[in-house]
Amino acid sequence: MTRIVHKFTRRVPEWRPRLEPVKLEEATREQLDALRVTPSNTKVSDYVLTLAHDVESLSVRSPLFNAIMYDRGGMSREERELGALAASMVNRCIYCAAVHADRHAKLAKDNSVTDELFANGDKADLSPRNRAIFDFARKAAEAPPSAGPEDIDKLSRVGLSDEEIFDLILSSSLFGWANRLMHVLGDPVGRKETV
């Protein structure tokens, strides 16, 4: 029996698609290219196989995702993860929130920020810099987006450069996209306990 996970956790669940993913043995050349399937790399997740139904989008999205989250300069990776997490909490994407809370904790070498966010949500006790980052990303993720000039001013006041602010806009916006795939096309399910 698998169980759908409804509560935020740093323990990354499995992702179970709500529709039939592309079957690797039936994939077209274009799909295989987008999936980067090579004879030595034939393991592809159900999530990526699901997105392979729209291969033109998948081909553009993977490098865009990596550039926004990992390109050098600007905002630290840890703080980009906080932007991703804030959006995922707004959209209640349990899977995305788990992955990016876990990455944040590992990059920060500290669980306390994500523990606090999962325990107290919007009312979490955060440092002024994390507070400004989380509040902007949370409001930007709402639908319609509700971040205003005062939220941007707050980011500058706690010391973010314009380059960092733009990176935060990108990472929190990116999860407006990712959450609408992950949270819509599948369910987060508990991993089977190993006996």
Partner: peptide, 11 residues
């Protein structure tokens, strides 16, 4: 999937 990608990209 195509419909989700469209709406998700717009977000």
């Amino acid at each position: 999937v195509r419909l989700c990608e469209l709406v998700a990209f717009l977000a």
